[in-house]
Amino acid sequence: AQASVVANQLIPINTYLTLVMMRSEVVTPVGIPAEDIPRLVSMQVNRAVPLGTTLMPDMVKGYA
């Protein structure tokens, strides 16, 4: 199964992502692939992302 990117903490709206904020986990539904974690660093979330939430492409500015 493919691992997705999951929030490792509460990520406030407009926060620039860093490695410590994200982890990879096999979840349903599938979100942003874990292999894209390096690409996500320094990208901004466009909403608050609670701890344990799967990151979806529409949550990250400029990802989709």
Rank of each mutant, 00 (worst) to 15 (best):
A1W: 05
A1N: 08
A1Y: 09
A1D: 15
A1I: 14
Q2V: 11
A3I: 13
A3N: 13
A3K: 08
A3M: 14
S4V: 02
S4Y: 05
S4F: 03
S4C: 04
S4P: 01
S4R: 02
V5E: 02
V5P: 02
V5C: 04
V5Q: 01
V5M: 02
V5N: 01
V5S: 04
V6E: 01
V6K: 05
V6W: 02
A7C: 03
A7R: 01
A7T: 11
A7N: 01
A7H: 01
A7P: 02
N8V: 11
N8D: 15
N8L: 11
N8M: 12
N8H: 11
N8A: 13
Q9W: 10
Q9F: 12
Q9Y: 14
Q9D: 11
Q9H: 08
L10E: 15
L10T: 10
L10Q: 15
L10P: 14
L10S: 09
L10V: 11
L10K: 09
I11S: 02
I11C: 02
I11T: 01
P12Y: 05
P12K: 07
P12N: 08
P12Q: 08
P12R: 07
I13N: 07
I13T: 11
I13Q: 13
I13V: 15
N14E: 13
N14G: 13
N14P: 00
N14T: 04
N14Q: 10
T15I: 05
T15E: 15
T15S: 13
T15H: 06
T15P: 00
Y16L: 12
L17G: 00
L17A: 00
L17V: 04
T18M: 14
T18Y: 04
T18Q: 12
T18F: 04
L19E: 06
L19H: 12
L19V: 14
L19G: 06
V20F: 15
V20A: 11
V20M: 12
V20E: 08
M21T: 03
M21N: 05
M21C: 03
M22E: 00
M22N: 00
R23Q: 03
R23M: 05
S24L: 05
S24G: 13
S24A: 12
E25G: 09
E25V: 05
E25P: 02
E25W: 05
V26F: 14
V26Y: 13
V26K: 03
V27H: 05
V27Y: 02
V27M: 06
T28E: 14
T28L: 09
T28I: 10
T28W: 04
P29F: 04
V30I: 14
V30P: 10
G31C: 03
G31I: 02
G31E: 01
G31V: 02
G31K: 00
I32N: 00
I32G: 00
I32V: 11
I32Y: 02
P33H: 12
P33G: 08
P33K: 10
P33N: 15
A34G: 12
A34C: 04
E35T: 09
E35V: 11
D36E: 08
D36G: 06
D36Q: 09
D36Y: 08
I37G: 05
I37C: 03
I37L: 15
P38Y: 10
P38L: 06
P38R: 05
P38E: 12
P38V: 07
P38H: 15
R39A: 07
R39L: 10
R39Y: 15
R39E: 04
R39G: 10
L40F: 02
L40A: 01
V41E: 13
V41L: 15
V41W: 04
S42C: 06
S42V: 07
S42Y: 11
M43W: 08
M43V: 05
M43N: 06
M43T: 07
Q44W: 06
Q44C: 03
Q44Y: 11
Q44D: 02
Q44R: 10
V45G: 01
V45Q: 00
V45R: 00
N46K: 09
R47Q: 08
R47E: 12
A48I: 14
A48R: 08
A48C: 04
A48G: 08
V49L: 13
V49R: 03
P50S: 13
P50R: 09
L51H: 10
L51W: 14
L51T: 08
L51I: 13
L51G: 11
G52K: 06
G52F: 14
G52E: 10
G52W: 07
G52C: 04
G52N: 12
T53V: 14
T53Q: 13
T53Y: 15
T53W: 15
T54H: 05
T54S: 06
L55K: 00
L55W: 01
L55T: 00
L55E: 01
L55Y: 01
L55R: 00
M56W: 08
M56D: 11
P57I: 07
P57L: 05
P57V: 06
D58S: 10
D58R: 05
D58W: 11
D58E: 12
D58K: 05
D58T: 14
M59N: 06
M59F: 08
M59D: 15
M59H: 12
M59P: 01
V60R: 00
V60F: 06
V60W: 02
V60G: 01
K61H: 10
K61A: 15
K61S: 15
K61C: 14
K61N: 12
G62N: 10
G62L: 13
G62Q: 15
G62Y: 07
Y63E: 03
Y63A: 03
Y63I: 03
A64L: 13
A64S: 12
A64K: 06
A64D: 13
A64F: 04
A64C: 09
